[in-house]
Design a binder for these strands. Structure first.
Length: 570
RNA sequence: UGGGCCGUCGCCAAGCGGUAAGGCACCGGAUUUUGAUUCCGGCAUUCCUAGGUUCGAUCCCUAGCGGCCCAGCCA
């Protein structure tokens, strides 16, 4: 094999299955997957795992991945979500080619196949109401009881089903059920529903239908219709697999599909510390106003991630790193953050930003003097060039880079201490002022003119400290949003050691009160005119992105994507 | 207490009868005009437990223990 291949994908049980299928010739080397979201909400980090897995697997084995909207429940699905989902999947870099599908595209066939199920004696119309069905389903340990309508004739079932479709009955009066086994130890096999009556407007089919298929029936049929080879889903569908196979086997027997039939394979969903990934909780956060919408940079949604400055490449790195398996896991948020750092470190140009400005006056620099200094745009990529940063008598430095009484190990500026102004000169502190409140308001220093960075001999004198700065006369003011983790505990809402047995915790109580703050910062002038979504490393601080929505000419707004690692305990 | 699935280093995760990959984290040390990056080195005599089969078991068998999922006309 060639040496220049990118990092080979890690082995996992799904790839093993695909490779075994390829080896046995099961699909003739073909692989087709699908990403099947329901358009009833925004995509989150958990979906990213599924998207990258499905599209990545297809790409790696020369196949295609279909985009498919599982839109079988008209009461909760909307076009708005379809558009948003497509935008997110595209943003992640995935390409579905011609395969943009909707389960609703198959309503005709789904309905026709339901009739063949009835004709084969595999389905019946039940006329019990929902409560009666629940009451006769049994429990985990007790078998259910057959419906009194279970043995209707095929003719009656067909007639009833057609009249359901024709709109003769109100919602909830009849339902088409699979005739399997009311005593099955697998609850999903106790005559599950196939079609329910719903007089509702569908976002794509309008009012053409008043009966809609259930997930278990629609999904496997859609997979078969699209010639999907490997149908990947999360672990909670494991006990639905026998049903998936039950429908397809019967429809194949009836001649609608040929074998081999698509195979459902389950993997464990993503759990991430310091956040929540359940649709219900995410909706709650938005609806109750705990965050500023679905695209709040703190939200674990793809819209939020994008606004925060997370990158598709970072997500790919993350998913390769955590792997695919069937064990329940809780991935530490630092892993995701670190992947973003890794990607951004390689690509982001460096800029200077002073987030908490403190005035520094260089006492031996004349009022109107402008000294041109040069800073590399990327320390590891000299080909990206340098830029000029002007140094003048009055500068902004970071407030935390000066300490009147330094703590142990501190090696930045201090009274009578020396430090290098990054890309500039070594300076020595000669004094400082304090305001009425006792807060340092201005620092004075003297420049050693023989130490300019880049000039011969400038390296002869070494100082440990190295701080960043900005010319007060040149810097532009900006709003910088310090985004942090949304929750302050690893598992929001979970019990903690020492909790009283009767105590119930609410994940909302674990929201990090400091997850969002905003500051007026000083930036290099070019940062004011950068395009929205431009990403930079603010030296010694972290990675920041020009806000996609609010960053405008004359009104710079940056979001902190992630801080730099800091081995100096803050 | 029915059924299904899972249990390998702090967090992930390979391995599938031949004597414990890798990543992240962590700990050393080197380089560094970002306390960043990069680089080198260290990091499971042991695979949930207990028995058994075998020349040999994380892999097979048995019995336990722990965790997750299933009782929507949701997906």
């Amino acid at each position: 094999m060639s040496q220049d291949t990118v990092t080979p994908p890690a082995s996992n049980f799904i790839r093993n299955i695909v490779e075994a299928d390829n080896a046995s010739g099961k699909w003739g080397g073909r692989i087709e997957t699908r990403f099947p979201p329901e358009p009833n909400g925004y995509l989150h980090f958990g979906h990213a795992k599924s998207i990258l897995l499905n599209f990545g697997l297809a790409r790696d084995y020369g196949g295609v991945c279909h985009m498919r909207f599982d839109d079988t429940n008209p009461t909760r699905e909307e076009q708005e979500y379809v558009d948003a989902i497509l935008e997110d999947v595209r943003w992640l870099g995935c390409d579905w080619g011609e395969q943009l599908n909707y389960t609703s595209d198959y309503f005709d066939r789904l309905c026709a196949y339901a009739e063949t199920l009835i004709e084969g004696g595999h389905a019946y119309v039940d006329s019990q109401n929902a409560e009666a069905m629940r009451a006769t389903r049994g429990t985990l340990t007790e078998p259910g009881r057959d419906s009194p309508y279970r043995n209707r004739s095929i003719e009656d079932n067909l007639d009833l089903f057609r009249r359901m479709r024709a709109g003769e009955f109100p919602d909830g009066t009849h339902i088409l059920r699979a005739k399997i086994d009311m005593a099955s130890p697998n609850m999903n096999l106790r005559d599950p529903a196939i079609y329910r009556i719903r007089h509702a407007h569908h976002h794509r089919t309008g009012d053409a239908w008043c009966i809609y298929p259930m997930y278990d029936y629609a999904h496997c049929v859609s997979d078969a219709l699209e010639n999907i080879t490997h149908s990947l889903c999360t672990l909670e569908f494991e006990s639905h697999r026998p049903l998936y196979e039950w429908f397809l086997e019967r429809l194949a027997d009836a001649g609608h599909f040929s074998r081999p039939l698509p195979q459902q394979i389950e993997f464990s969903r993503l759990n991430l510390s310091y956040t929540v990934l359940s649709k219900r909780k995410l909706i709650q956060l938005v609806q109750e106003g705990h965050v500023d919408g679905w695209d709040d940079p703190r939200m674990p949604t793809l819209k939020g991630a994008r606004r925060r400055g997370f990158t598709p490449q970072g997500f790919k790195l993350f998913l390769d790193r955590i792997g695919i398996s069937k064990s329940d896991s809780l991935i530490d948020m630092v892993v995701l953050e670190d992947c973003m750092r890794e990607d951004l470190n390689a690509r982001a140009e460096r800029r200077i930003a002073v987030l908490d400005p403190l005035r520094l006056v260089l006492v031996n620099v004349p009022e109107d003097h402008v000294e041109e200094c040069f800073a590399p745009n990327h320390p590891q990529k000299p080909e990206l060039g340098k830029r000029m940063v002007p140094l003048t008598r009055e500068l902004w430095i970071e407030r935390e880079d000066f300490m009147e009484t330094p703590s142990k190990g501190y090696f930045r500026l201090r009274p009578d201490g020396e430090v290098r102004l990054r890309y500039g000169f070594i300076i020595k502190c000669t004094g400082f002022d304090k305001d009425e409140a006792g807060k340092v308001s201005c620092v004075y220093a003297e420049v050693d003119m023989d130490t300019k960075s880049g000039t011969p001999g400038s390296e002869s004198r070494k100082v440990k400290g190295n701080i960043h700065w900005l010319s007060a006369a040149h810097a532009v003011e900006a709003e910088v949003r310090m985004v942090d983790r949304l929750f302050s505990v690893p598992a929001p809402g979970s019990r903690r050691e020492g909790d009283a047995p009767e105590l119930e915790r609410d994940f909302l109580d674990d929201i990090n009160p400091h997850s969002k703050s905003s500051t007026r910062a000083m930036l290099e002038p070019s940062l004011g005119s950068a395009a929205p979504e431009s990403t930079y490393q603010f030296e010694r601080h972290g990675y920041f992105v020009a806000d996609r929505k609010d960053h405008k000419p004359g009104h710079a707004v940056y979001n902190r994507t992630v801080t730099l690692r800091d081995s100096w305990a803050k």
